[in-house]
Amino acid sequence: MLILVIAGLLMLAPFTVDAYLPSFHAIADEFGVGQAAVQQTLSLYLLAFGSMMLFYGPAADSFGRKRVILLALLAYAVMTVLAAISQSLVQLIAARVGQGLAAGAGVVIGRALVRDLFAGADAQRVMANVMLVFAAAPAAAPIIGGWLHEWFGWRSVFWFLFGFALLLALAIWRLLPETIRPEARQSFAPRFVARSYLRAFSHPRYMQLIVVFALLFGGMFLYVAAAPVILIDHLGQRETDFWKFFVPLVTGLILGSRMTRWLAGRLSMTATMALGLSISGLAVLYNLLQVSLQPADQVHGVWLTVTPITLYVMGMATTMPALNITALDYWPAQRGLASALQAATQMAFAGIVSGVLVAQLADSLLALAVGMATLYLAALAMWGFWWRTDRRMSSG
């Protein structure tokens, strides 16, 4: 049951990102604005979400996991109601920023809880399950959001998120123990927190894994954020057809999660990362080939488009639990802070992908494929730096 609660914490933030994606056109029409303006409700949410994580990590290390997450969930619920009753795009953007400021607690504290409660191969298996939910939520959310939009309109998506937040707060209040003993809590003094972040930023192996994580996730999120354009504009689908894109992605995430669970205790974490990166690399190559070989006047099929993306996220889901555990183990006494910096980097980069790269690349499926390939190659190069550094430090 605790694993389900932790998974719910990680699910809330990406659900808030993606559940309303099928409603982009309807929101633009209701408020009389363009798609680029509506896109700001996503990119500004992500920037607020990522930056606030830097607060929640030290706060959870100082005041305890349970107290911080309950207060954040209550704030999230209030902001979600304001989003549901927004009467203008400005009001909706303000409410989305408020959601982002509150939602960051779930990801930071959820990841830290895994290492508080589990160790070794058990931690890798649990993290695989938790990361499956975190990575699958961006894929499942538009399916649910699309049907809510079809049945009740776009505002119903936010009422759904409000109900989910209240149920999650109740479950945490009743079921989650406090995992930080009073004597193990860290100072929340600004100078101590600043020095701790400076030490984390200056730790090369930790930061290399953080950047790898962000780049790999960015490769998937490029397609998730561009999904309304890909499905509706490029592929001629409807708001209720998002399942054709996202169900295969969920399948890939499930397969990757099952693989990393099976590999836990059989392969080292480094070998597991290498295997997952190799799978994603094959997917990137396949994606470039299938896009570039299509005639310019031929409409790309949904299944042809989504197959390499499914393979990519399978490799990503294989890699990420080992990345997470290895990065957090560099900071055993400050896992909240380490998780915060990790998640903040990931979400800040996702905000850049959504606000900048999608706007530049979404008009062309080939451009999206090249964008994914670029992000993957950068991740692979950074992982190579980490691997060489880790081997050198271990042998020394």
Results as ranks from 00 to 15, higher is better:
L2M: 06
L9M: 10
L9F: 06
L10A: 14
L12W: 08
F15Y: 15
P22N: 10
D29V: 15
G32P: 07
G34Y: 11
Q35I: 14
Q39H: 09
Q40A: 11
L46S: 01
F49E: 01
S51P: 04
L54I: 03
L54S: 04
G57I: 02
A59M: 11
R65Y: 12
K66A: 12
K66H: 10
L70S: 08
L71N: 13
L73S: 01
Y76Q: 04
A84F: 09
L89E: 02
V90A: 09
V97G: 02
I109P: 04
A123M: 13
V130K: 01
M131L: 08
L132I: 09
V133N: 04
A141W: 00
I143S: 05
G146M: 07
V157W: 05
L161T: 05
F162L: 13
A169Y: 03
L175H: 05
P177N: 07
P182V: 10
A184I: 14
Q186V: 08
F188S: 07
S196T: 11
L198W: 12
R205Q: 14
Q208L: 05
I210E: 00
A214C: 10
L215N: 00
G219P: 02
M220S: 13
A227I: 10
I230S: 01
L235V: 15
R238F: 15
W243A: 02
F245H: 06
V247D: 01
P248H: 03
T251K: 08
S257E: 06
M259L: 12
G265Y: 09
M269W: 07
A271T: 09
A274W: 03
L277K: 00
L277I: 09
I279D: 01
V284I: 11
N287H: 13
V291Y: 11
A296Y: 11
D297W: 08
W303L: 06
V306D: 05
M314W: 06
N324I: 06
L337C: 03
A338C: 04
Q346K: 13
G355F: 09
L357V: 11
V358L: 07
S364N: 12
V370K: 06
Y376N: 10
A378C: 14
G384H: 04
D390L: 12
R391A: 10
R392I: 09
S394F: 14
